[in-house]
Design a protein around this nucleic acid. Structure first.
Lengths: 209, 209
DNA sequence: CGGCCCATTGACAGGCATCAAGTCCGGTGG
DNA sequence: CCACCGGACTTGATGCCTGTCAATGGGCCG
């Protein structure tokens, strides 16, 4: 039956599916049957320590592929953050389409690198000292991955609780750091979930110091 | 000439090479020409923030493959920690040998997962609060990746400075945490670079709480 | 034996997690 | 349309953790 399932997999075309806020796409430990592609919205990779501490191991933006079959089972739970559009690629199809073609020496597997990249990036951010530094790095990442709206404003892709779990800190600290950036006139926030980078050089400086 | 280099690459057999303490295997930003395999010893993945803070993004143990061409260029610098034996696989050969064979649906790319796994693991460890917790997790990882010597003793694969950069803390804190574990009779250390796990259940408990 | 690097220890201050209220906001139902 | 309600965010107070600095100790190598 596993055989049959696989055969059916192989014939399956990519599936487009919408997902609503907090909807679970797959659970940590599920077998890797599909590779997911974000078309619209943002997805978070959630990982619980055994005692229950929540971590967000990565954030996936439009264009990213995740849920790669590096292992037999998914290493994290994937949840839509807001309304999203997701494409599910059957694992076999995905492998044939995206993994390196040996005949072409320059074929770097772009989509295959999305997930490791996102996790690596998070590791680099979390490894730095200072909530302000980590938060600034995070905002810069958001800025380069998300389209600004009319006034150069960007939507915070995650609620502050999630930002805290992504940055390995507490929601209160995130809130305070955001306020600090506001008071330093580095960013401004018209709404709680929207920000504008006023002084990008300084934001970069903070992120790197 | 790039063509020529690649052609020569393709004909190259795997190269075994020893590497001494602190020897650089490749630098961050170098083009991914080879995939490396650890045979003996331990290798560290070093990453510098732009302002100079050092991080150790991963540790590679015997059996691990790293330096994968997920991107065109290496994302970190790889250095031998102590005396090591390394196998260099030309990128093309490696791709053909190890990347998933589409005809075999169950062919999970084991070696290809080593590097992402190590980075993911480090992210999970660094994301937790408390130096003691992080250090305990680290020791447990060492225990399951390294062979014990006669008396169940394990060599610390890294000097404390590196452990600190791996755990995103300071050398002093690492030293104090080690002492604390000693005083709690969870581990013992006959030498500065060697430890024995006395009370593994408790060590696990600390690591997860 | 001397020098160097790493590990160790102590003192101290600052950052940040935690707890506890209080506020804002969107959604729901009357 | 308004009142209510719950969840997320905000803010303040407090104490611990841990990063930093400085000095000492110890092992290894020349």
């Amino acid at each position: 039956m596993a055989e049959l399932a696989r055969l059916m997999c192989c014939r399956t075309r990519p599936i487009a599916m919408p997902a609503g806020p907090d909807e679970v796409l797959f659970l940590e430990g599920d077998p890797c049957e599909y590779v997911y592609e974000v078309r619209r919205g943002v997805v978070r990779a959630v990982k619980f320590s055994t005692e229950g501490q929540r971590q967000i191991a990565a954030i996936f933006f439009p264009g990213d592929h995740f849920g790669l079959p590096y292992t037999k089972d998914y290493r994290f739970t994937a949840e839509a953050v807001t309304d999203t559009l997701i494409i599910k690629h059957a694992r076999q199809n995905w492998l044939q389409s995206f993994i390196v073609n040996p005949a072409d020496p320059d074929n770097i597997p772009g989509p295959a690198a999305n997930e490791p990249d996102a996790i690596f990036l998070r590791g680099c951010i979390v490894g730095r000292h200072g909530v302000l530094v980590r938060l600034s790095s995070f905002l810069l990442v958001v800025e380069q991955r998300l389209e600004p709206d009319g006034d150069g404003g960007l939507l915070l892709p995650l609620p502050q609780t999630d930002i805290a779990d992504f940055l390995a800190t507490s929601p209160e600290s995130v809130c305070r750091a955001l306020r600090q950036l506001r008071e330093m006139r580095v960013i401004s926030m018209s709404r709680r979930d929207r920000f504008v980078i006023i002084d990008k050089p300084r934001l970069s400086a903070i992120a790197e110091c």
